[in-house]
Amino acid sequence: MRCEKIKKWISDKLDGELSEERKKLLEAHFHRCELCRLYDENLEKIHEDAQSLKVPHIFPDYWKDFDFRLKTKISSCEQDESRRVPLFLRWKWVLASAALIFVFFISFFYLAQIKAPQEVYILSFEDTFERISNEMSNDPELEELFNSVILASLGEDIDDFSQIISPEFYETPLFWEGVTEEEMDFLEIEIMKNIKSQEDFHEN
């Protein structure tokens, strides 16, 4: 394990990347370890040989030709660059169409919102009464409560009930034609109550 670390230090030493302190430790290790010392010698030989390897000689004519070709390529690159239309311009028709469609949809929704009648939920009186009467037909207690509430509200608005039930009112045949049997019963009870209260009043 220690020798493995030493071998890495040998590699670093050849690249000039080993600190002086470690170089001393390395030398001390070589005195004790023959294998590492041999490894160091081998690597030094490889390093020297590798550094002395040279590439084939390149003739100056090659570089002249190289420079000429490079300049031609770069010039054509520059021309291409100047000819190149910016991306947003290449897509101008698409962008313009998209903007037009967007504007169209926005205006369509805006106009539709203005013209559309305000949706207000109005519960019609007829429907309400029908629902209440249906409920009341199955529940006599509710019917009684409803009648008392209606009467109480009428009593609040009109101080004198006799103003509504006028003699002319009783005498109108059209009124009696439209009255149902149930309504007749109700009126009868109310009239009786009224007569009784008047009699009580006179007696007192």
């Binding site: 071998k7 040998i10 590699s11 490889i46």
Partner: peptide, 23 residues
């Protein structure tokens, strides 16, 4: 880089060991 250099050299040494010790 340091580790790769170390490994590269180790491989080279293994491949050239016979020639290095013979030369």
């Amino acid at each position: 880089v340091s580790w790769r250099m170390h490994k590269a050299r180790k491989m080279l040494q293994t491949k050239l060991k016979l020639y290095l010790e013979g030369g």
